[in-house]
Amino acid sequence: MHEQLLFALEVSLNGLMTGVLYSLVALGFVLIFKASGVFNYAQGVMALFAALTLVGFQSGQVPFAHLINAVFGSNIHHFGWHLPVILSILLTLLVMVLLAVVIEKLVLKHLINQEPIVLFMATIGLAYFLEGFGDLMWGSEIKRLDVGIPQGISESIENFTFESLGYGFFIDRLDIVATAVAAVLVISLTVFSQYSRVGRALRAVADDHQAALSVGISLRYIWVVVWSVAGFVALVAGIMWGAKSGVQFSLSLIALKALPVLMLGGFTSIPGAIIGGLIIGVGEKLFEFLMGPLIGGATENWFAYVLALVFLVFRPQGLFGERIIERV
């Protein structure tokens, strides 16, 4: 029994760490939604694109090699160098900022004052475009992402818990790093949005577009900032998931895991995204552990949605959302 309890604890810990990554992806959604009222369907693909670009830079891949070779009959694939991790990350960040500028210029700018559903559709288009563009630029084969994060089961934790509890916890070092990184990111984003000038302008835009304009805030500038930050968050999420399970199309599907997190946490709440991610992460792992054997396993595919749905029925505004009381 004691053993069982410890095992459950280990499962929860693992869930917590996956949960942090869910939070990270959800955070990207929340940032954009708060500032521009757009539900950015492309957030997951942005993570994939960022990871692809990072691997590409790092391994000295020639962008659009396939296209270039097809047109010029050449046969180039690599520059023949390997860039340092930090430089590659900075370059990727630059690409994500450029992407934000382009999205604003080519898409958002033309859709000001459109219905939310139109903007949502536009981001669906964007997602598929970016997916194809990423393929074209970097090729579609599965890539390994190695930015030097230690991997494998942490022996010190295993030994320590074995000695003190009589049961060795299996915890992946990558998960520990990911958790730490995500925590730092979440804290710095919160500080940025609460205490910096741009953060204040960001919150202003989120609250009231007209009023924000009237005090001299350029919505377009803010949108570029927000999409850049979301691109940055996507990059971090892409690195963590990519390091865990390789850079491939399925990485973009992590966005699907963010949806129940958003249903739980509310679309506009940063703390909601964090707590929501943790609840879903722990919840789905524990549920699989407790109920999986009874009902045939693979509960992780649907549990998060059901949990979110049940939650939605009782608290439609999410964990921390403001209760909306209709004025009659």
Binding site: R197, V198, A212, V215
Partner: peptide, 12 residues
Amino acid sequence: MTGRITRMGLGL
């Protein structure tokens, strides 16, 4: 404070 944005810029 947001009212001062025209005076102080966003200073990113």
